[in-house]
Design a protein around this nucleic acid. Structure first.
Lengths: 147, 147
DNA sequence: TTGTCTGCAAATCATTTGCAATATT
DNA sequence: AATATTGCAAATGATTTGCAGACAA
């Protein structure tokens, strides 16, 4: 586990600092997305001295290195999620419990075709995120147990 | 044109104020996405007194009413685009000239199937945005005329 | 008239930055 | 040793808010 993260960091040419490893561990411990502030709270339990800017800087680097993925929400806050799955995929995000699940369908082939034929442009990237309620939460909502 | 906007606003139960009409006109005049600040600049040419908060408040309301759509970029600024097309669709965004073009493919059917079968959850909304270069801009880039 | 909309000034608050001290390779 | 990383305090800057006056229905 930790060795896995060590080599992940080395591949990205980032030094293996305890804080960086811990950020990955914190995110790996839950399958939900977290804000920088929330990650900071959890990090404070492990380090006496830990600054919020460190969290921000690392999250950004890890996200650029495709180790973390960003979750897009209407508020202006960032959220991050640790991607176990290396291959190209997208996310289903539960708006209630924040769980993130992989979606293995990606219609970008068809879109590429449309861009090539009609728009005649070039694709650099695409964002596909599906928001909803996961199995558990939609059951809770149906039964009126929310809170 | 203006009458169209009038009824659009009435449908949303928003009062038909000159500022609101002008925001729609400003956005309709260009087929690119604009930031609230940029819209403000253009509005200042039409009104002696016009506050940035008015721009923000109206953009948000119009966006909630699905008259405008938001463009998602990695910086933490909002951008808005006037959707001519009422039916469900997605956007191709040129990262160079900011032009927005409609994409008529939407793979949400397949995703819904996956969410129903495997995730067993419920979909509320989805974000699909394709980023790239439009026809003109990719030609410019290829020929090295950028600047 | 009655509730909505707007301008202004001030507040918010997530994110960044500068820089000196510290840790990694 | 050389370079990357971190903490701290302060800065940034987009967006929001409170409120009194103006406006649309």
């Amino acid at each position: 586990m930790e060795n896995e993260y060590r080599s992940t960091l080395q591949n990205l040419k980032l030094k293996t600092t305890p804080k960086r490893l811990a950020i990955l561990e914190v995110l790996a411990q839950e399958s939900i997305y977290l804000s920088p502030e929330e990650i900071w709270q959890r990090m404070k339990k492990r380090f006496q001295k830990i600054g919020l800017p460190t969290i921000y800087r690392n999250l950004e680097e890890l996200s650029e290195g495709h180790v973390l993925s960003k979750v897009v929400l209407p508020n202006r806050q960032r959220y991050y999620y640790l991607c176990r799955n290396q291959s190209h995929h997208h996310h289903f995000v539960c708006l209630y419990c924040r769980k993130v699940e992989d979606i293995h369908f990606c219609g970008v082939k068809e879109i590429e075709e449309e861009v090539r034929k009609r728009i005649k442009g070039r694709i650099f990237s695409h964002i596909l995120q599906v928001n909803g309620l996961c199995s558990e939460c939609s059951r809770l909502k149906r039964d009126g147990h929310e809170g």
